[in-house]
């Protein structure tokens, strides 16, 4: 069952403050395969496992309908550091 990018985005934005959000449809059309990249203050002080569980919980219904789901979660500080590193390289 296809899930729209907009629905995913709304579900996440409803629950946590978002610094940066990328939702990539990797399904080539069927809408069942998404990769998301979330940068949020809400992840501060949480382990990666806890962050992923948090997102899994927010998107529980949607993920159950998907074929594949992948995520990356950073705090704004980590994201800045990553960008700085990328620029320097």
């Amino acid at each position: 069952m296809p899930i729209s990018q907009g629905d995913l985005e709304a579900s996440i934005r409803n629950v946590i403050p978002i610094t940066h959000l990328e939702i990539i449809d990797q399904s080539s059309g069927c809408g069942e395969n998404y990769a998301i990249f979330v940068v949020s203050d809400a992840f501060e002080g949480k382990t990666t496992l806890a962050r992923h569980r948090f997102i899994n919980d927010i998107l529980k219904k949607e993920i159950a309908l998907m074929h594949a789901f992948s995520q990356k979660t950073l705090t704004p500080k980590q994201w800045e550091a990553q960008q700085a590193k990328a620029t320097a390289a």
Binding site: T48, H52, S70, Q71
Partner: peptide, 9 residues
């Protein structure tokens, strides 16, 4: 420990 994303990270 985690799934693919976490293991890769």
């Amino acid at each position: 420990v985690g799934g693919c994303d976490i293991i890769l990270g």
